[in-house]
Design a protein around this nucleic acid. Structure first.
Lengths: 353, 353
DNA sequence: CTGAAAGCGCTAACAC
DNA sequence: GTGTTAGCGCTTTCAG
C-alpha cells in the first residue's frame, strides 16, 4: 500500500459532465404538466400540493428513476449532510489506514453516520498538517470533521478550534485543549494492564510505544502509576519508545533482549505492537507467556484468535463511533466542545497467564 | 459493531446552515476592489487577468482563508470529483467493514483516488440491494461508483450497467456480465493453494467457504481443478459451505472433526477464515501444521504474524485500488467496461509445512 | 392549491 | 484586462 506519487499529483485531465445531461426537475414538470415549483413541493411532501398531483409526480419520478440533485439542493438550502473523516498518515513512511483498530473505528463511524442520515467523506491527511483537514469544511464539502488520531500538533488543532471549524478528534485529552476529543480512558487502561501484569507476578514490566503520541503517553503514565501503586521502582530503560512500525518494534525487542535490562513482561501500546513483540520474542526463543507475559491495547478482532490469545485493554469501538458523531453533531448545533472519556475494560487471555 | 437501528432511521433534526454565512467570492471581490469575475479568474489562474491583481486577490484570499465553495463550483461546472465507495453488508447479521482485507482495499482505494485528485464518499449498502448504490450517482453526489464485493445479485449489477451507471466491482468475473469487475485470479489462486497442499503430501484437502459468492466459487473451482490435476478423487463432503461468520466456521470445523470425513488439510477461502479454523482445530487438540495443514486467501497483514504464520494466496492490494479506479475513470471517460484480472502469488509459510 | 420570479455561490461568454 | 450578465438545478417567497 505504499504509493510513490505525492499528494500534489497533477489533477489529471477533465472529469467534466457525467453522462449526457441527467434528468432534472424541469423534465418531470413538463411530463407531468405542472410547474417545477409544484414538482419540488410534491417531492418534498409539502401539504400545499394536491394529493392527486403529488401522487402523479411521485410516480412519474419513480418510474423515471429521477432523484433530486443534492448538489443544487444543498446550494439552495445552504445545508450539508456530509461529514469528513480524516485519517492521518505519517508523511515519512506514508503508512496509513493499516492498523485494524483504526479501520474498525472507521466502520463504526460509518455506522453512526448512516444511522443519522449523514454521509462520510473519507480522506487521508498528512499527520504533520492536520490543519489541512479543515479545508473540507472551508470549501463547504463537509459540515464537520472527524480526525482519527491527534498525533503531535496539538497546536494546529487548537488553532482550528479557534477558527471555528467544527471537529472532533479521536485521541487523548490534553491540558489546555480547545477542541473536543473522544477516546478511551488511556490512563486507566494503561494502569489496568500494568497492574494485571504485576498481579500475575511480573517484577520487571517493559513498556513499548511512542510516548510522543498523546494517547500512548497517557497509557505510559498509567503504566507508571501502576508501578508506583505496587511499590515497584521505575527503571526508565524499560520504557522503549518504538514507533508503530514493524521493523522498529522488532529491532527494539532484539535490543532489549540482547543488551538488557532484564524484563519479565511487556505492556505494548497497541495490539498490533503486542503481536509483533510476541512474534519477535518467539523468534528469539523466549516463550510467551511462560517466560514473558505480554499485554496489548485495543482488543482488535484478531486479538482473541492470536496464539496465544492476547490479554488486552478493550476500547469500546461501537460506542466510539457513536460518541464521536454525537459530539460533532452537537457541536455543529452550537454546543461547546466537550471531551468524552470512554471506559476501558481488561480482557484477560492466555498471553499473560 | 452491531447496530440496532435500521437504515431507515429518521433523518433527525436540522443540519441547516453551518456557521454564520461563510466568506464568499463577493466578499473578497469587494475587499480587493474588483468584480467577482476577476476574483474567479484570478483564483483559477486564468491568463486573462493582470498579474498584479491576480497576486493581490490570491493573497487576500489566503490571508482570509477563503476557499471556493465546491458545491457551487460543481453545480456551475457540471463536474464532480467524488467517487462513491460502497461496502455491502449482510442485512441479516449486519456484519460489515470487518474483514481486514476489505479494509485494506478501502485504504488502497483512498490512495488511488487522492493520487488522482478525487474524493471518496464511503458508505454501506445492503448486500441484497446492491442497486441502491446507484443512487449516489443518480443524485449527482458521485461521478462513479466502486462496489467492494458483488455478493449474489449479479442481475442487479447488470441492470445498473444497462442503466448507464458508471461503476466497477471488486469481485469475480461471471459469464454474461455487462459490468466491469476487478479481482484477483481466484481460479488460479485456488488452484495454487490446493496444489501446494497436495505437494506437501496432503491426500484429503477440505475446502471452507461459501460457494454462493462468485469469488469463493471460483476459488472452489480452482480447488477442484488442482485435485483433478493431481489425480485425486473429489469428496464432496470435504467442501464445507461456511459463511464468513466466526461461529458458523467454528461449528463447521467441529462437525467435520466429529463426524468426518477424514481430512489432513484445509484450504480456507479467506485468511480470517483460515485463522478461525486454526484456532478451532487447536482447541480441539489438532495441531497445525503437524496434523492438519491450513492455507488461506488474501494475505492480510496479520497472516505473517499469526502463529503459525499463514500460507496464503496473496492478492495485490495496492494494485487493486489502482486498477479499480483506473477502470472506473476510463469508463467515465466513455470507455467500455472491461474486466481486469490481477495476478495472485502463493506465500508459503509455516502453516503448511 | 399552483405558477412566476428571485437567488443559493460560482463561471463563462460577451461586451467594453 | 475587467465588468456585466446569464444560468448551473433547485427551493421559496409572493401573487394569484
Amino acid at each position: 500500500m505504499t504509493r510513490s506519487k505525492p499528494d500534489s499529483a497533477s489533477p489529471a485531465p477533465a472529469p467534466k459532465a457525467s453522462a449526457a445531461s441527467r434528468l432534472q426537475m424541469a423534465d418531470i414538470a413538463r411530463l407531468a404538466g405542472v410547474s417545477v415549483s409544484t414538482v419540488s413541493r410534491a417531492l418534498a411532501g409539502s401539504p400545499l400540493v394536491n394529493e392527486a398531483t403529488r401522487l402523479r409526480v411521485a410516480e412519474l419520478a419513480k418510474s423515471l428513476k429521477y432523484t433530486i440533485n443534492v448538489g443544487a439542493q444543498n446550494l439552495r438550502l445552504k445545508q450539508n449532510r456530509t461529514i469528513a473523516v480524516n485519517v492521518p498518515y505519517d508523511p515519512a513512511t506514508r503508512q496509513h489506514l493499516s492498523d485494524p483498530f483504526f479501520l474498525s473505528l472507521i466502520g463504526s463511524l460509518a455506522d453512526a453516520l448512516t444511522d443519522r442520515g449523514y454521509e462520510m467523506l473519507l480522506s487521508r491527511v498528512d499527520a504533520d498538517r492536520l490543519d489541512l483537514a479543515a479545508q473540507s469544511f472551508e470549501t463547504g464539502r463537509a459540515a464537520g470533521i472527524v480526525l482519527v488520531g491527534q498525533w503531535h500538533h496539538h497546536d494546529q488543532l487548537n488553532e482550528m478550534a479557534v477558527r471555528g471549524v467544527p471537529f472532533v478528534v479521536w485521541g487523548g485529552q490534553l491540558p489546555g485543549q480547545l477542541y473536543a476529543t473522544v477516546g478511551s480512558d488511556n490512563l486507566q487502561g494503561g494502569r489496568l494492564a500494568t497492574a494485571h501484569l504485576i498481579a500475575q507476578g511480573a517484577r520487571r514490566v517493559a513498556f513499548f510505544g511512542d510516548p510522543e503520541l498523546p494517547e500512548v503517553n497517557l497509557r505510559h503514565q498509567g503504566y507508571l502509576l501502576a508501578l508506583k501503586d505496587a511499590g515497584h521502582k521505575v527503571d526508565a530503560r524499560l520504557t522503549r519508545p518504538a514507533p508503530f512500525v514493524r521493523e522498529a518494534i522488532e529491532q527494539e525487542v532484539e535490543r532489549l533482549c540482547a543488551e538488557g535490562p532484564r524484563f519479565d513482561s511487556v505492556f505494548a501500546a497497541s495490539d498490533l505492537m503486542a503481536m509483533t513483540v510476541i512474534s519477535t520474542l518467539r523468534r528469539l526463543g523466549r516463550e510467551v507467556p511462560a517466560e514473558v507475559r505480554v499485554a496489548g491495547y485495543d482488543d482488535i478482532e484478531l486479538a482473541q484468535h492470536f496464539h496465544p490469545p492476547l490479554t488486552t485493554v478493550r476500547q469500546p469501538i461501537a460506542e466510539a463511533g457513536q460518541a464521536l458523531i454525537e459530539q460533532l453533531l452537537s457541536q455543529m448545533g452550537g454546543a461547546r466542545a466537550q471531551p468524552i472519556l470512554l471506559p476501558t475494560t481488561l480482557e484477560v487471555r492466555e498471553s499473560t497467564r
